[in-house]
Design a protein around this nucleic acid. Structure first.
Lengths: 342, 342
DNA sequence: CTGTTAGCGCGTTCAT
DNA sequence: ATGAACGCGCTAACAG
């Protein structure tokens, strides 16, 4: 029934400007600008006239013009591999929340897991003249680093640590986390281990660190390893079957690169009538909400995504109001959560 | 070891402009602008000189200045209740992906579930002069609607349908979905039903529609209903206990407002040794990935989030290049997925 | 094919 | 406490 809900479209009326507001209030454009940015610098009487004029006209400040004039966009660009992955979205959510409280908006984009795509997006983002950039991980193309450096704005790299960040990094050591996992396995009597990993760089790095540390402790290489494109329950189930096809020993400890993969494997194990953790032990990574509720409850590595996002925001904010050096590498740590699956 | 990775900070060097590029290439600033926006209008020779100059200087276009001059920001603002909820982030991801292919970037913000907060954010977003706005749901404050209308840009409301959208809407009927769920329950022989619902407006609307239709069919009101703040496994588990505290009959059909709540209830039922669906039948909403993998597999209502996002993007795009009326209400439908939990 | 001239709507400086 | 003038870096006409 299309009752033309958009009547007032098509009118050629220019958007209202500070000039218009000022005219109505009987003051100049600058005074309107002041009234908005620094009300104390305007007399109470004119302030009132101005706010009235704003209400009357429905004035909405033009942040684009403001940004061009002030060279401050109040925009932070954030690049994450995937926004549907709770692991990244939770960190971005807390980051955004803190930044917003300080008057910044976050322009978020998905990069996928390819540094080349990330590079292209960095260029697009930089053209919006963000006041800072947040990146995921510490691996970027040379050109990306160069553009970022040349842009001369703060950059935070999250989810990892390095001694040589572009500017600031906040995250944790994936190596150490995986090493701890290997030690956990060995200390709990496992003599045989396997890995199931997603294809992204950090997951692969954890896998490698786990395998190398476990081999060191057990005195034998980790023979069984499978990796898949992305973390999903289906890939977790398939992962177990793929491992079994490699003739994995009974009682093997499987280190998965994420809770979702581990959960999928748990489901497949249950479907096969396998006992966890005796027939097979399964460890996840991330400690997502469901991890405590699987059957059996999932042993995993906890990473505090909220803290991660908040720390990144705070690092940026402190950099904004002091050119002084702040901590450029921030380690938020991790924690092994021993439950019943491994 | 801090090898000062940020050497070229602090230099007072102005960012390079089209003017600079032009000077180096021996042409005027406009020609540089043309070379970038419409290479065909520039001779091959000067084009080459310009691209060389761009490489040499590391020029990054200033989209802010471009937007101010052209009155096109190539920015779409998107407001969703929560970005960590896969239900919203998946829709936004596909929306963003399509928009990006067409040269638009998406400025995403979380509104929570309060229309008042949404209103404030709409104002902030409009100040960036987006070329369009995407909103979640069809309930907004009067002032929000008015600002949107006055802004004179396309608006898409997603996740619901209405005969009177602000501009365009794409979603499905929550009423009809819940009615179908009630009919499914009744047709499968259930004579007693209950609901567990999160607190958001659409969830409550589904709950109401389910209860009213089921009561109509069964000839008796739905006695047991619980609702909670947000969807989480813990709230799903608590929800079952709360329902039991209301002395719910054995063999009751519970309609949950989301798969996550349903999953939590499934877990609690299992922990209590209840048989599903005989002791208690549980139905979810959303058909998230895990729904097919719970024990027993979750009966639910499927909503195609990817299609939702893509349709919203396409509706906008078609509106951009034709002021002509397009379909302003788009229904993407839903589907009852009968599995084993109900 | 290329350049000139005008803004876009603000913030910034400097007066008053 | 307020205003005038200028410029941010670019696109949009219009010339030539």
């Amino acid at each position: 029934m299309m009752d033309t809900p958009n009547l007032n479209r098509k009118t050629t009326s220019r958007r209202v400007t500070m000039e218009d507001v000022g005219r109505l209030a009987g003051v100049s454009q600058v005074t309107v600008s002041r009234a908005l940015s620094d009300p104390d610098k305007v007399s109470p009487k004119t302030l009132k006239k101005i706010t009235d004029a704003i209400d009357a006209t429905g004035f909405v400040p033009n942040a684009i013009a403001g940004a061009l004039a002030s060279k401050k966009s109040k925009l932070i660009s954030a690049l994450v591999p995937s926004i549907t992955n709770i692991v990244y979205s939770a960190a971005v959510a807390s980051f955004s929340s803190v930044m917003r409280e300080h008057g910044y908006q976050v322009l978020l984009s998905e990069t996928g897991f390819d540094p080349k795509d990330e590079e292209a997006m960095i260029l697009t983002h930089l053209s919006r003249r963000p006041d800072a950039v947040l990146l995921t991980g510490i691996h970027h193309t040379a050109k990306a680093r160069q553009m970022l450096l040349a842009s001369d704005i703060p950059v935070v790299e999250i989810w990892d640590t390095t001694e040589t960040p572009i500017d600031i990094c906040v995250g944790f050591s994936h190596d150490r986390a995986a090493v701890k996992a290997a030690e956990y396995a060995f200390e709990n009597g496992f003599t045989c281990a396997a890995t199931l990993s997603a294809g992204d760089e950090r997951a692969l790095r954890r896998r490698a660190a786990f395998e190398s540390r476990f081999a060191e402790l057990a005195g034998a290489a980790v023979e069984n390893a499978v990796h898949c494109e992305r973390a999903s329950l289906a890939n977790g189930r398939d992962g177990l079957r793929a491992l079994q096809a490699q003739s994995m020993e009974k009682g093997t400890f499987v280190f998965c690169s994420s809770d979702v993969l581990a959960h999928g494997m748990l489901i497949e194990a249950s479907a096969q009538g396998l006992k966890v953790p005796t027939d097979i032990a399964i460890m996840g990574f991330g400690d997502q909400e469901f991890a405590a509720h699987t059957e059996p409850a999932l042993t995993t590595v906890r990473v505090d995504r909220t803290t991660l996002g908040r720390s990144a925001a705070m690092a940026l904010l402190s950099r904004f109001d002091s050119a002084e050096p702040i901590a450029s590498v921030n380690d938020i740590g991790f924690e092994i959560v021993a439950r019943h699956s491994a």
